[in-house]
Simulated assay, not measured.
Amino acid sequence: MYASGFGWSWGPLTWLIPSEIFPIKIRPAGQSISIAINFGVTFILAQTFLMMLCQFKYGIFLFYAGWISVATIFIALLLPETKGIPLESMYVVWEKHWFWSRFVLDGLEELPKEVI
């Protein structure tokens, strides 16, 4: 039940979110970095799961439930909704977000012409 629930909910987010939030010019690099980090974390989890299971017993599932709670809070607070936003206008979503707006240049007018 856990594997199917994870596969339908949190599992695909590593593949989905970068494809929706990165601009077209850097999407391949952003997607590659995201998936590389996902594979690295999955490897670490796979290598440590049995050791943690022996030490924590059923507590390991509470441990992972805690991390899922942290991820849920992060997504709810820091990831803006991108539904109906064209990829070329994604910077507008980040400019309007309460947290990320301080890291985004206004309308890209501060960038040199060769970067844009």
Rank of each mutant, 00 (worst) to 15 (best):
M1P: 14
A3I: 14
S4A: 15
S4Y: 09
S4W: 15
G5W: 05
G5H: 10
F6N: 09
G7D: 07
G7N: 12
W8M: 14
W8T: 15
S9Q: 09
W10V: 06
G11P: 04
G11V: 00
P12V: 01
L13S: 01
L13T: 02
T14K: 04
W15S: 11
L16D: 10
I17R: 04
I17Y: 05
P18M: 07
S19A: 15
I21E: 01
K25T: 13
I26W: 06
I26R: 05
I26K: 04
R27Q: 10
R27P: 00
P28E: 06
G30L: 00
S32N: 08
I33N: 05
S34M: 04
I35E: 04
I35M: 10
I35W: 08
I35H: 05
I37H: 04
N38T: 06
F39R: 11
F39D: 11
G40K: 02
I44A: 10
L45Q: 09
A46H: 11
T48W: 05
T48D: 02
T48C: 03
L50A: 15
M51N: 14
M52Q: 12
M52E: 08
L53V: 07
L53A: 10
L53K: 13
L53G: 01
C54P: 03
F56R: 04
F56P: 01
K57Q: 07
F61K: 02
F61Q: 01
F61L: 10
L62G: 07
L62P: 04
F63P: 01
Y64A: 01
A65K: 06
G66R: 05
G66K: 01
W67L: 14
W67M: 11
W67V: 02
I68S: 04
I68T: 13
V70C: 03
V70T: 04
T72I: 13
T72Y: 15
T72V: 13
T72K: 11
I73V: 15
F74D: 07
F74W: 09
I75Q: 06
I75W: 14
A76Y: 14
A76E: 13
L78D: 10
L79T: 08
L79P: 00
L79F: 14
L79A: 07
P80Q: 00
P80E: 06
P80W: 01
E81W: 05
T82D: 03
K83F: 08
K83E: 12
K83M: 05
G84K: 05
G84P: 05
G84Y: 03
I85R: 00
I85E: 00
P86T: 06
E88I: 10
M90C: 06
M90K: 02
M90A: 00
V92I: 15
V93I: 03
V93K: 00
W94T: 00
E95G: 02
E95M: 11
H97R: 07
W98V: 09
W98K: 08
W98A: 08
W100T: 06
W100G: 00
S101C: 10
S101H: 11
R102F: 09
R102S: 04
F103A: 05
V104F: 07
V104W: 00
L105G: 13
D106K: 14
D106N: 10
G107K: 11
G107L: 02
L108V: 08
E109F: 12
E109I: 03
K113D: 09
E114D: 15
V115I: 14
V115N: 06
V115H: 02
